[in-house]
Design a protein around this nucleic acid. Structure first.
Length: 344
DNA sequence: AACGCGGGGCG
DNA sequence: CGCCCAGCGTT
């Protein structure tokens, strides 16, 4: 926050009143519906949840109805939503509520979290929407909003980062208007501060958003680190002419091997001939591919399939980005190491 | 084809 | 605590 901006929470509350969602079927006072919606929304988006929610409520209108239903009926109503342990936990929790809480929901997040299927964030959401508790939620949308706004580095799945986010989420809570604030945070994350292509122009907190100011929306929050680096595959074309020269192409200035001379690259062996005809205007007869060569970069493995081929007669090259080279001249060119190795 | 999603269960 | 899983939708 800067001195010239109203509080983060106040801007979010005002935004939610004007642009947020107010007509969702679980925006009611019934804790049962709020709980059900929060569990359904744990791994599933709003648009998918709505019909399941309406059907579920029609079949099991209250906690008692759910508690006394058969597991099969509950699972049937859940069928298609996925993560079926949610339905089993829901059923168990309904029975706990009937047997141990007189069929009523406890109000404190610390009590709600005891229900199976209710974690810290879901407990807070229920407590906020059903009972007006002053508690912080931290779901995927909120993590993204806060990580961007405050410029929090690191992957939010990492404990250290998550602790920081929880702390921030608590510190930003308003003293009043908690439900509108919490709904606003959710709505902002799902409608404006989206994972890809966020609509920062429509954001009520863009003025002091670290990611927006620095243009780092695509870098925050940091993605989950991959343990196995991805494997990429290219076909490199070893095209010779009648004089034994090799055909090279200068690579685009940005990206892998930027600006270096290299062998033409094809997606696969089958498209190589049409690519040569289309892009270079030469007809090439390709031989069977040579065995793959593997090369490891920092961020991915590259499997190279060398594909030898021949054109007949001399070919005049007009494009300055391509050319025919004698093998002896290639020594003096700037070539990527694996390509140089391949040519030997 | 890989990723993201909240919570639970495991070692 | 870190690690993995669940199932569907999105990218």
């Amino acid at each position: 926050m800067t001195a010239s901006n109203p509080l983060f929470a106040d801007r979010l509350i005002a935004w939610q009143e004007q642009y947020g969602r107010h007509d969702l079927p679980w925006q009611v006072s019934d804790p049962y519906r709020i709980w059900l919606s929060e569990v359904m929304l744990q791994q599933t988006q709003v648009g998918t949840v709505i019909p399941y929610f309406l059907n579920f409520i029609a079949r099991f209108p209250d906690v008692a109805a759910l508690a006394s239903a058969s597991p099969d009926d509950v699972l049937a109503a859940w069928s298609g939503l996925g993560y079926y342990s949610r339905a089993r936990n829901l059923h168990r929790a309904a029975q706990m509520l009937v047997n141990s809480h007189g069929g009523h929901f406890p109000q404190a997040p610390e009590a709600l979290i005891e229900l199976p299927g209710v974690g810290r964030s879901t407990a807070a959401a229920i407590a906020v929407f059903a009972f007006g508790a002053r508690a912080a939620i931290l779901d995927g949308n909120v993590k993204r909003v806060l990580a961007r706004w405050a410029g929090i580095e690191g992957w939010p799945g990492e404990k250290r980062v998550e602790n920081t986010l929880w702390q921030l989420a608590e510190s930003l809570l308003p003293s009043s208007g908690i439900a509108g604030y919490t709904q606003g945070l959710m709505d902002l994350g799902s409608q404006v501060c989206t994972r890809t292509r966020p609509c920062c122009g429509a954001c009520p907190v863009k003025e002091d958003c670290v990611a927006c100011i620095a243009g780092r929306q695509s870098q925050l929050p940091a993605p989950k680190p991959r343990k196995t680096i991805p494997e990429r595959h290219v076909v490199l074309l070893l095209i010779r002419d009648a004089r034994g020269r090799i055909f090279l192409e200068r690579r685009p200035p940005a990206g892998i091997w930027g600006g270096l001379w290299s062998l033409p690259e094809a997606q696969d062996t089958l498209s190589a001939a049409s690519l040569c005809a289309c892009r270079y205007g030469v007809n090439v007869d390709f031989d069977p591919p040579l065995p793959d060569v593997r090369h490891t970069f920092t961020h991915f493995h590259l499997a190279i399939t060398p594909l030898p081929g021949a054109v007949n007669g001399a070919v005049v090259v007009t494009d300055s980005g391509t050319g025919w080279f004698d093998l002896v001249d290639i020594e003096t060119l700037g070539l990527p190491a694996p390509v140089r190795r391949l040519l030997k």
